[in-house]
Structures are given as C-alpha cells and as structure tokens.
C-alpha cells in the first residue's frame, strides 16, 4: 500500500511538473510574440538566452498557493506584504536591457519572491540581492537555496547604500522605483555598467528606466515602455 501511495505521488508530481512545463512554454510563446512586436518597433528585444532562462525558472515555486493557478500568466501576482511577483514580460525585458554576460556580477535591490534573482542567476556569474522586508528576505533565501541557486547571495537590509564589499557591479537591478536613484548605487556601478529600474506602482509598471554609466562616468538614462507601441496622436 505504501509503495502504491509513493508511486501515485511520484506520478502525480510528474504530471504536475509536465503541466507546469507546458504552461511555462505557453508563457514563453506569449513573450516571444511581444518580443517580435518590440523588434518591429525598433526598441527593446528578447534574446534566446533570456527566453531560455525564463523557461527554466519555476515561477510556480515562487508564488503563494492561492496564486498557483495563475503562476504562468503574464501578469503580476500578489505575494503578500504589499508586494508582487513581477509580470514575466517586465522581468524578461529588464533582464534583456542590462545585457547580462556569463561573467557578470549583478546587484539586485528588492529580492521580493526571488524570481528576478533566479532568472538573473541562470545568466550571470553571481547575483547579490538585498531585501528590506524580513519575512520576504527569509522566504526568498530558503526558496532560492532549495531551488539550487547557489550563485545568489541574499541579505536583509537597506539597499540605499548598495553592497560595498562586492562592488563594483556590472549591472544593478532595482525592483521598485524610489523618489530618486541613490547616489551610492551609481557609484557602485562599473564604468560601462547598466542599471534598470521599473517605474510605476505595484501591478502598474509604467516604464523601465535604463541608466548607463559611460566609461568616463557620465550618466545617461533611457526610458522604455508601452509608449513605443502607442502613437500619441492620431485617429482614435
């Protein structure tokens, strides 16, 4: 009887895993459609490497049980504590825009569910991530460990001053915009490095702010968003 139960559990797990693989692939297909649109409009793009990473990370292991049925929907989901797991399209775009390389060291401000850190970990050498909400920091640390992401280091604390011991960084991902970009983060960015910040409220990302520190230390920003798809004037 025990053997039968174990077999049933294994089969059920396998079926579940397959189910998630299928829905995850559907999500990737959806992202590819958007990526194609983005290419047509000469703005951002989604590379195969980023799409592969998105297709590898198990988003369903990062959402609360109540949100499991929607785990692979291309939308933000509540994860408690007033926070959300970001919309997959936004995560993919943010990852793409910082042009990750295999030997990059990336700083993330705002670990949240750990989803963005996991996607980055698939692509870069090491991810350092800081979270200010204790419950989320503890949860994400355990979750990322259990999922085998040993190239992600997390800690609880103030992201304003970055993580000096591991600076400078090839890229910095700030997962929620504050009233200004902290000067210490700009300092900890390597010359030629990129910083990405989603601008807008929870559930409502408006634009992505991409900050580039040129080789001579000058700061230039670019903003990307749905605006590129909307001709601002014209026939309604």
């Amino acid at each position: 009887m025990k053997i039968l139960t174990c077999l049933l559990l294994i089969v059920s797990f396998a079926v579940q895993a397959d189910d998630y693989a299928a829905v995850r692939q559907s999500m990737i297909d959806e992202l590819q459609v958007y990526a194609k649109l983005a290419r047509d409009t000469d703005a951002s793009r989604l590379s195969d490497a980023v799409l592969r990473a998105m297709n590898t990370v198990e988003r369903h292991r990062m959402v609360p049980a109540s949100q499991l049925p929607f785990a692979y929907e291309n939308r933000p989901l509540p994860i408690g504590h007033g926070q959300t797991i970001s919309q997959p399209y936004i995560v993919a775009l943010m990852t793409e825009l910082i042009e990750p390389d295999a030997d990059d060291v990336v700083l993330e401000i705002g670990t949240g569910s750990g989803y963005q850190a996991a996607v980055l970990a698939e692509l870069v050498e090491h991810v350092y991530s800081i979270e200010i909400i204790e419950a989320l920091a503890t949860q994400a640390k355990h979750r990322l460990e259990s999922m085998g992401y040993d190239n992600v280091t997390t800690r609880l604390g103030d992201g304003y001053f970055g993580w000096d011991e591991h600076a400078p960084f090839d890229a910095i991902v700030v997962t929620a915009a504050a009233s200004h970009v902290p000067p210490p983060l700009i300092e900890q960015l390597k010359p030629g490095g990129l910083m990405i910040i989603p601008v807008g409220g929870r559930f409502m990302t408006q634009t992505l702010l991409l900050l580039e520190k040129t080789d001579d230390g000058e700061i230039i920003t670019r903003q990307y968003g749905a605006v590129r798809f909307v001709p601002l004037t014209g026939k309604h």
């Binding site: 959806e30 958007y34 649109l37 983005a38 291309n74 939308r75 919309q87 399209y89 936004i90 775009l93 807008g200 409220g201 559930f203 409502m204 990302t205 408006q206 634009t207 992505l208 968003g225 749905a226 798809f229 909307v230 309604h236």
Partner: peptide
Amino acid sequence: FKWTTLPEVFALRRMGGAGL
C-alpha cells in the same frame, strides 16, 4: 482617460501598458 484609447491601452497591459 479617453474612452477611445481604452481598447488600445487595455491590449497593451500585458506588454507593460497597465500603468496607462
């Protein structure tokens, strides 16, 4: 808000247009 823009921005909500 303009009603005439709603279909366009609603379709964009999955492409980062929810804030619109």
